[in-house]
């Protein structure tokens, strides 16, 4: 008699455990993927802006060639490095992506600083429009990154702690890489009008 109650009790516990947790990791995984694709969209948006920006700046005689080639080079590098959601658990892949985008951020903010020295350029409507778009995009990138970090944190906490740990073991889920906030990489280039 007593043993039967025990068995029923354990079964109920097991059922509760399954019901409460079976969807947690897959849905968190989807959330991480969605926030990651948002990060990628915003980086892509920035890369799409660059050819126009380069064209506009190029028109200005004796604009520092090195600054321009740095931006073009950094963009070309960043285009080559893609990061699919499956690669988010791979620290090396995430670091490569981060480095490429970080270099591009640096090159772009140098370009914007150098542009300060060209009064004609700063008066150009096209340049002003591109500048505000670039600032907006940097802001979007920083928000998309914050959202991504928040979802990854939630995911990793679940995967590393009880009872999510058991589900992680069942699903074979591993913690995902979060961003290391690189100094200057996530800040919009400080450009004053």
């Amino acid at each position: 008699m007593k043993a039967r109650y025990w068995i029923i009790g354990i079964l109920v516990l097991l059922a509760l455990f399954i019901v409460s947790g079976i969807n947690v990791i897959p849905s968190l995984d989807e959330k991480v993927n969605a926030s990651w694709s948002q990060v990628q969209n915003q980086y892509q948006r920035r890369m799409d802006l660059i050819p126009n920006l380069v064209e506009t700046v190029k028109g200005y005689a004796n604009f520092e060639q090195k600054t321009l080639t740095d931006v073009i080079q950094a963009r070309a590098n960043a285009t080559k490095i893609t990061l699919t959601p499956e690669m988010l658990s791979d620290p090396q892949a995430v670091k490569r992506f981060e480095d490429a985008q970080g270099t591009l951020s640096g090159a772009l903010s140098r370009l914007m600083v150098v542009a300060e020295r060209y009064p004609d350029l700063k008066a150009n409507q096209n340049f002003l429009a591109l500048q505000s778009q670039l600032e907006g995009t940097e802001n979007r990138i920083s928000i998309a990154r914050k959202d991504y970090i928040a979802t990854v944190q939630e995911y990793n906490t679940t995967v590393r702690t009880f009872p999510g740990r058991i589900w992680a073991w069942i699903y074979g889920a591993t913690p995902k890489q979060t961003f290391t906030a690189a100094e200057g990489a996530e800040r919009p280039p400080a450009v004053k009008f």
């Binding site: 002003l128 429009a129 505000s132």
Partner: peptide, 8 residues
């Protein structure tokens, strides 16, 4: 309401 228009 793009970034450029907002800025303007």
């Amino acid at each position: 309401l793009t970034d450029a228009v907002s800025s303007t």
